[in-house]
Each structure stands twice: as structure tokens, then as C-alpha cells.
Design a protein around this nucleic acid. Sequence first.
DNA 1: TTCTAAAATTGAGTCAATTCGATTTTTGTG
DNA 2: CACAAAAATCGAATTGACTCAATTTTAGAA
Lengths: 204, 204
Amino acid sequence: MSGLRARQKADRQRRIIEAAAALFRDAGYEGAKIEAIAAQAEVSIGTIYNYYQNKGDILGAIVSLEVNEVLNAGRGVVARPPANVGDALDTLTGIYIEHSLHYLSKEMWRQAMAISTQLPDSPFGQAYTALDRSLTEQIRALIARLQEIGLVRQDIDGAALGELIFNNMNMMFIEFVKRDEARIAELRSAIRRQNRILVAAIGV
Amino acid sequence: MSGLRARQKADRQRRIIEAAAALFRDAGYEGAKIEAIAAQAEVSIGTIYNYYQNKGDILGAIVSLEVNEVLNAGRGVVARPPANVGDALDTLTGIYIEHSLHYLSKEMWRQAMAISTQLPDSPFGQAYTALDRSLTEQIRALIARLQEIGLVRQDIDGAALGELIFNNMNMMFIEFVKRDEARIAELRSAIRRQNRILVAAIGV
DNA sequence: TTCTAAAATTGAGTCAATTCGATTTTTGTG
DNA sequence: CACAAAAATCGAATTGACTCAATTTTAGAA
């Protein structure tokens, strides 16, 4: 059986995440005091630190949920890509970007990115790096798929290309979340413009 | 005349920066307490906050010095680029990367990057964004130069290409400073490998 | 059921960045 | 030189993330 202790643990963890997500959304990351999260989750401050090493890790848990959803959504595109290199890249990129602000505000993204650079060895820092790598791998998989189909030249270094595309998209996304007034549509078209150079170079 | 007040101000500012730079280097960013910086600079805590909005801005002032040096070093390459697209990009990128750890440790870079994402509207956040833009502009200038010389095709969208190259390099640099064990040589060769795809595509 | 060790919770206390009102210094005017 | 306004300095008090030793709860053996 699943034991009382295990059940309580799962329940407390869920309450902490729910309380934190609500407060991050309403008050912002800085505005959400640990004391308030603890009160809302009906646990003590100490318990929160028993579950998470620091405030950033709580945000990290929420970010991971989001990015994993994005990765899932991307699988479909890799499996059945549009029959055109430019569209294929744009569709995958589009899924990433459109989903990105579903649960996380720009401020939450900024904090998450900052923490992952500041503390690359913390649990969240490592998880974030792993998520970035998964996204890179998914783009590489798309390119490999396009090479199989014959839409991308076989002699292209797919691994390097995938990383290049991811890095550029990611950097554009970072700039995007840094400017509150930046719009998703502009971000997508800027990335499309940059990818166009690559598309011309790698198509058969 | 330059007034007592103005002279004292400049002198205090210099002392704060010198004290902070020394302590950041010796104790790390987190380890350098504001109280210690104040003591070493022979000013009070309050005075430090009169000159800088927060601890991050002090680091920001130091980072700006460094990046401006890098930009200066880059001018020479743009003026007289190597007679080969791949080498031209590699030389400029190389200057950026080799200089980067001259005054700033990886930990200082991590903190600086984190702060610039976390607080994009703080004085340092805006300065950092401006520095990134200047680097992008310099790469664009190099490409424009290569187009003039006839080494890069005229019909290439130089602005988009420059941004693409900068974004990729910058993202690689971020990953580099996140891993203490990463080596400069590996970073450069990874970037060269990615640029190779572009070089093949844009050369005449 | 009773008891003990292990696991988990708790919140008062610590630490360091940042604030802010009182105090001091500089400037320029008469 | 004397003086008042402006500019700058100062550090004690505030704030909020995080720690840790004491306490409570659970598991499971006898």
C-alpha cells in the first residue's frame, strides 16, 4: 500500500506548488514571500525547505512542468513534419513559443532563466540545462527526419545545425521575455527571417 | 575648475569599483559583502547605495569596462578582416572569447548575466542589453565589410545573419560560463563547427 | 498495544541586502 | 567671513530568504 507518510508527502508537495504558482502569478516571483507560500500551503517555512532547496527550486518545478508539455507538443511535428523546410522549422518553433506563456508569465521566465545561470549546479539549474538539451535534441530530430524525407541535404551536419537553430531561437526568446512589450508575432517573424538564411542553405 | 565635490565623487566612485573588483575576485560575488566593500572603499554602506542602485549594478559597472575593451579589440578585425569568411568570423569570435575571462571570472559572468535577465530595466540590465546590441552590430559590420570585399554574397540578409551568428555565439558562451570545467578551446571549435554551415551557405 | 528509531515538521533565530531619516559637508551668495 | 539651501554621507533599522535544534509524527518490531 502507499503508506500514510507517502500520501501526506505527495499532498504537501502538491499544495506547495499550487500555492507558489498562484502567488507567483498574482504577486510576481519577488513579491511572493516564502512565508505567504507556506501559509497558503498550510505548512511551515521549514517544511518548504525540506522539499525544495531554495525559492528558485520551487519556480523550477513549475517551469519543468511547462517545458515538458512543450516537448510533448513538439513530438507530433517531428513525427509528421510539414513538407517544406521553412514551414517545418516555423511550426516547431511556433509550438514552443506559443505554449511558453501558457502557465508562466514573462517575469517568471526571467527569474527562471536568471536562476539557472546563477546556480547552474542547483537541482533546478541542472534540470533547466537538461530541458534545454531536450529541446535541442528535438530540433535535431526534426532535421534528421527532414534529411530522411529528402528535404534537407544529407551532407549537412545535422547536430551542429540543430544546436545553431536552438541557440538562436533561445536567445531570441530570452530577449523577448526581457521586454514586456514584445509581442509573440514579432518574435516568430524575426526568427523566421533568420532561419530563412539557413533554409536556403540546407534545402535540397 | 572641477570643484571639490566633483573630485571627491569621482574618487569615491573609483574606490568603490576597485574595492568591489578585488573582493569579487577574491571572495566571489556572493562572498563579497556590501559591508566589506564599503569598509575597503572607506565609505559607508549608504554611500554605496547612493552611487549604485544595488549590488548587481556594481558588478555591472565592472562588466561594462570589460565588454567595451572587447568591442575596441574587435574594431581592428572589422577594419582589416582575414581574406576568408570562416577565418574572419573565427578571428572576431576568438577575440571576444579570449578577452572575456581577462578581468571577469566565470562566476562573475554568471552573476552578471543572471542580473541582466532578472532586472532588464535596472541601469545595468539596460546597459547589458546595449552591450549585446553593440556586439551584434560589430558582427553585422564585419559581414557588411565582407560583402563589400566580395567574400560574402550580396543577396544575403546581413542584418539577420549577424544577429544569428551573435545569438549562437552568445548562447554557447552562456553554456560555457555555466560549466566551470569547460575550456575555451572547445568553445571556439564548437562555434567554428556551427559557423561552418553558414560559411558554406553565404560564401560567393 | 507499547515502545523506539527514523523521518518529517516547526518557527524562532541568523545573516546580508537594502532603506531612510538624521547629520554633515559643500556651494555660492551677500 | 557668515549663512542657508542643496547635495551627499552615514549607519541603525527593516526585510525576507534560509538554517537548525527541538519537537512531533509515523513505521514497524516485539
